[in-house]
Design a protein around this nucleic acid. Structure first.
Lengths: 343, 343
DNA sequence: CCGAATGGATGAAACGTTTTAGCCGCTATA
DNA sequence: TATAGCGGCTAAAACGTTTCATCCATTCGG
């Protein structure tokens, strides 16, 4: 019960405490015979390293944290899997923290992570304002990599997908299909991705000099339930004002909209076309397969993790980098039906 | 840069080191004036507790780990969210580890967690054989709660849903609908849930004295992709041998099957009926809304976390408990069409 | 045969907390 | 007035590692 420590192992093997440590950390510097005696003692006592002590000495831990907006969102789980792969290859451990789009929880997590002296933090921050807690981490020398958040501040690396371009792709597509009343669904606008995708959509409209109308309906978060509620609002509009197409800030919202619309007897895409964002695995399996803007999710995670490890290795010589991936529109049935010139 | 420690804070505030510790841990035992001076010093130095040192002293950490089979599976993300809620309320931290249904990775995670002296572990183990690494944790006095895994061993608490009953519910339903050739899709069979759900289905058949046939197709894992592959195999069968209904070990498989079947021109449920398991959020949003066996996912997580904290508090006086929840069949369109007596 | 180099081990310091025993000065009680 | 009790604080030990300076014995080159 009373967990054996390195000293007991040493006594058991008839060597000094430092030698045991050497067996553990630099096995080749200790004579084979001695090494074997120590290893035997270790197994016979069931000794397991105490990581707290190790960390205390080292000054930092060997774990890396990733703070995501929503663990249940397939987009983030894929990012996590990508990051995990790289981190584990490096012999470190990835812990997943969920901010739930709540900046208080985000702050709480960051504080705990700072207390733990984690090796680094991958994060998709909740807001896009200043982030004092995050800055503090950086001051302390803990590497931070922004995930899915461009606008590279000079003080940190970042990995992102061009959300403005993504918004533009979606909007161009809908305009090409002849839609004139289009709604953008997503929120809160404090989430940068939500804002950027909208900005892209608006820019596309602008550039074409199109007369089409882009209405925005802000949702409280990015879940299926929020999508359903947003669809209800749409349905409450008089038919002549109702959008003929909706572009959703993510696929969860889109799935919710799809569910609610079909439940209320509207046809997709005949009555309302839908384009989502992320191209999660379930988009293709939806009632009406969902058009969506695809992001290289696990590559996002992998690259972020690589940048982090790089920075952790390099220390002061590190120069921050900003990697931007290109999104790609995947057209499926939910938006694949051109309108006549004027509805 | 050189992270301030408690000693510097003490010097700065003109008190002893022990007093600073008291301010941090038992604020009411120190005079208001002194306390304020210490707090000022803390903020002005940007002092942050070093958790390694704290843990070293305490003998264990304040984090709890949950090891799941697949972070990207919505079933587990919901369990995680439930557990998270309880753990965070208790002021602890939940770290999520992903075994990916790979027992080597599971073992590696457990070893690291043991080194970290975590407060406890919630786990859905990969296999159902003996688990030496897990036993070692328990020997060491680290509480372990089995999640979604009944068959309560006496040495640990467990939280589960009656998978045998779930299998029975699904099978009874399909038999009620008049199906005679039914397939069970899932795997690997080493996963207890997969085996139990099958056992339930087989038991239902047996009890009814039904002459219906229950074919088993083992998949390599529980993903959408595996479901698609399984459906291909089904399609390769001559039409007269092809099952008229499939019961899938989880919803991901079911969604994959649904996708592949409809892509190949079969109608669901007219040609093939489908019942899934878990009732994840996306089941209802599927191309054909999916019948499924619902589990109280976040309650599973919450209860598991509560049991764990209880055990961590109680220590030796703790008596292990085994909580079993009842699943519930949700019938949707994918299986809602009775057959004629004999096909 | 001497000095230097080398391989292999040791002892002690250091990491930053928490906790325990004890000290000091004051007040309330008998 | 002596004593016990108490509030507020301090000093030091302990937690389990890693690392660094040191030491011993052996071997090697000259």
């Amino acid at each position: 019960m009373a967990t054996a420590n390195i000293k007991e192992v040493a006594r058991h093997a008839g060597v000094s405490l430092g030698t045991v440590s050497n067996v553990l950390n630099r096995p080749d510097t200790v004579a084979p015979a001695t090494r074997q005696r120590v290893l035997d003692a270790i197994t016979s006592l069931g000794y397991v390293r105490n990581d707290s002590a190790r960390q205390l000495r080292a000054g930092h831990s060997r774990t890396v944290a990733i703070v995501v907006l929503d663990v249940a969102n397939p987009f983030f789980t894929d990012v996590v899997r990508g990051a995990e792969q790289v981190i584990e290859e490096a012999g470190a451990m990835l812990v997943v923290c969920n901010s739930g789009e709540d900046s208080a929880r985000e702050r709480r997590h960051l504080e705990l992570l700072e207390e733990q002296r984690v090796r680094g933090v991958l994060i998709t921050p909740v807001g896009h304002g200043p982030q004092p807690t995050l800055d503090k981490l950086i001051d302390r020398g803990i590497p931070v990599v922004l995930v899915d958040r461009g606008a590279g501040r000079a003080s940190r690396c970042s990995v992102a997908v061009d959300d403005v371009l993504g918004g533009r792709l979606a909007m161009d597509h809908l305009l090409d299909q002849g839609h004139h009343r289009i709604a953008y669904l997503g929120g809160p606008l404090s989430i940068a991705q939500v804002a950027d995708r909208h900005a892209g959509a608006a820019a596309a409209l602008e550039e074409r000099g199109s007369t089409a109308e882009l209405r925005v309906a802000v949702t409280s978060n990015l879940t299926v339930a929020a999508g359903r509620r947003a669809a209800e609002e749409l349905l409450a509009l008089p038919a002549r004002q109702r959008p003929t197409a909706v572009f959703c800030a993510n696929d969860l919202i889109a799935l919710g909209v799809l569910q609610e619309l079909t439940a209320r007897g509207l046809r997709v895409p005949a009555d309302v076309a839908i384009v989502g964002y992320d191209d999660i695995e379930f988009a293709d399996a939806a009632a009406v397969p969902l058009s969506s803007v695809r992001q290289p999710r696990d590559q996002l995670g992998r690259t972020a993790a690589q940048l982090l490890l790089e920075e952790a290795e390099a220390g002061d010589t590190h120069r921050h980098r900003h990697v931007v991936f290109q999104p790609e529109l995947v057209v499926r049935r939910s938006s694949d039906q051109p309108r006549r010139a004027r509805p």
